[in-house]
Simulated assay, not measured.
Amino acid sequence: MKRVLLSTLVAALPVVAMAADAEHVVEARKGYFSLVAIEFGPLAAMAKGEMPYDAAAAKAHAADLVALTKYDPSDLYAPGTSADDVKGTRAKAAIWTDMEAYKGKGMAFFEAIAALEPAAGAGQKELAAAVGKVGGTCKGCHDDFRAKD
């Protein structure tokens, strides 16, 4: 009896470990995008005139976004971490079934961030145009790869 119970527990360990790992991956992915939101939020508010334009602050937020694009987020997309697999994420399984399209959307985002950096300190009008392009890349990805609430 003890051997059956022990072998059952040992056999279940990889499943439990994978579930814990999947949850950690999801939390890390959410953390990464939380950082993006923290840096992008003030830029969007300045672009919309919801807060005063501040060239130094805009440049700092844009530089932080550029730094975030230097991180390789591929390990945040481990198989088995979609909303179908793990509670607490809105990542659609389509990410893993069409990873090339997802990567293309990611590259568009990274390119828009690169263009945002010089525009950030050039004035509110320039910032607004660049923020609009970044926001468009976010929306395009969310439309295809993120489930609604």
Rank of each mutant, 00 (worst) to 15 (best):
Tyr32Ala: 04
Ala11Tyr: 00
Asp98Gly: 10
Leu6Ser: 06
Ala57Asn: 08
Pro52Gln: 07
Asp72Ile: 00
Ala67Ser: 14
Phe109Ser: 02
Glu27Ala: 14
Thr8Asp: 00
Val10Trp: 00
Met18Phe: 10
Gly135Val: 02
Ala45Arg: 14
Phe33Lys: 03
Phe40Met: 14
Met1Leu: 12
Leu65Ser: 01
Ala115Thr: 03
Ser7Trp: 04
Ala130His: 02
Glu126Asp: 09
Pro118Lys: 09
Thr97Gln: 13
Thr8Gly: 12
Gly135Lys: 02
Met51Cys: 03
Cys138Ser: 01
Ala114Lys: 15
Ala57Cys: 02
Ala108Cys: 10
Ala58Gly: 06
Ala101Thr: 12
Glu100Ile: 03
Gly31Asn: 12
Phe145Ile: 00
Asp75Gly: 07
Ala67Ile: 02
Pro42Gln: 10
Ala62Arg: 00
Gly132Trp: 06
Glu27Cys: 06
Ala115Trp: 06
Ile38Ser: 09
Ala47Val: 04
Ser74Trp: 00
Thr81Asn: 06
Leu5Gly: 03
Gly41Met: 08
Ala57Arg: 10
Asp85Asn: 14
Asp72Met: 02
Tyr32Met: 04
Lys139Thr: 08
Asp84Asn: 15
Ala55His: 06
Val36Asn: 09
Leu6Met: 12
Tyr32Pro: 11
Glu27Ser: 13
Ala37Ser: 14
Asp72His: 02
Val134Met: 02
Glu100Trp: 07
Ala119Val: 06
Ile95Trp: 07
Ala62His: 02
Ile38Met: 13
Gly123Tyr: 12
Ala47Met: 05
Met46Tyr: 11
